[in-house]
Design a protein around this nucleic acid. Sequence first.
DNA 1: CGTTCGTTTGAGAAACCTCAAGGTCTGTGG
DNA 2: CCACAGACCTTGAGGTTTCTCAAACGAACG
Lengths: 202, 202
Amino acid sequence: MIHEGESNASAFILAEGWALSFKILPDGERQIVDFQVPGDFLGLRSILFRTSDHSVEAATRIEASEVLASDILDAFSHAPRLAAAVLWAASRDEAMVVEHLVNLGRRSAEERMAHFLLELSSRLLLVGMGDKTGFPCPLTQYHLADVLGLSAVHVNRVLRIMRDDGLVTFRKGHVTFDDIDRLRDLAGFDTAYLDQDGPLLR
Amino acid sequence: MIHEGESNASAFILAEGWALSFKILPDGERQIVDFQVPGDFLGLRSILFRTSDHSVEAATRIEASEVLASDILDAFSHAPRLAAAVLWAASRDEAMVVEHLVNLGRRSAEERMAHFLLELSSRLLLVGMGDKTGFPCPLTQYHLADVLGLSAVHVNRVLRIMRDDGLVTFRKGHVTFDDIDRLRDLAGFDTAYLDQDGPLLR
DNA sequence: CGTTCGTTTGAGAAACCTCAAGGTCTGTGG
DNA sequence: CCACAGACCTTGAGGTTTCTCAAACGAACG
């Protein structure tokens, strides 16, 4: 949909399905930067920034509404509240990327997995998908490997260990939290960075 | 200066010296998100976002000019060109964070080091510090470890290997590129994500 | 002249990877 | 209905990278 290096004139708001933004290295390895779930912007940065610096593709069948770049830029002069909402979305995106950075830099494979699944759960709850016992998740273990900076084989082992440990079960398109308190503890997860209350309550 | 969790009403533009933004994990480990060099914003996100989600501290003695949050937010309605410049800065920050993410997720210790030093060099060149043969660098090996997601011991070994290999020398506050072409090759470094030309030429 | 901070090196351990092989599930064409 | 292909998951064995612990050294500083 959005390819690295292209100049794009618009972004999208994801209405249905999951997408992923990623970069491909010269040697063909992929690092997924983040997933987008319903309600998220796709390619917001490619509007504010001259060139999109990563690619986006669909993980499932998706539905999205196009948002013209010009409309967003106009909002900055004519609709300050709307502009603030867009900025909030962009800032939240960056906060998540920063958290992923910490994840990759300083957490073990198990901790990363726990943190990632808890973040997804929080984000999905906000749009009414899943509940505190788990959530539907169309990702493959290859997706998990590429977002967590691990090999797919190691992802599989980590998932088995966590399942055997009674922490969380990732299977057949669904994530089930078997002991969410211990999972939170393991991940050191704190939702503050997600700023869940949003820009409208400021 | 800026502490995680506090609500801040202003940001700064760094005039002199180096700073770092980082997060501390519950177990005391530190992940440096990025360094700021002269010309960079400090705490820009804490204006756009309700809570600053990371801390900032000085790496050297620094001089910075305060920028009031209200002035920046006003700019969005009254000075679109200025607002665009601020957005450009914020987007460039995020592009760098994304690149660091890829660094941590999918590159080896040597590749990370090469990439990081080349990025710093590019950014410093833009503000007239250093040249293509190297640049002054007040960072310690502990700083490198915490930004690259490595242990300080391993950073030391990697630096020695790269020095023995005739790639780059990191010593006594100065980085010297001994073979910048091979270094670029090793890192797969491409400046595109830095969008060096800036927002004014759009 | 002792202390602190940063660097350097060694040895052994842990985490994670690669390669390889097999298993399961699902959709598809015969 | 069956056979097959492709995508995904699972497990084992062995190797590499990186970590931790420990110790020593040099330079800067009071």
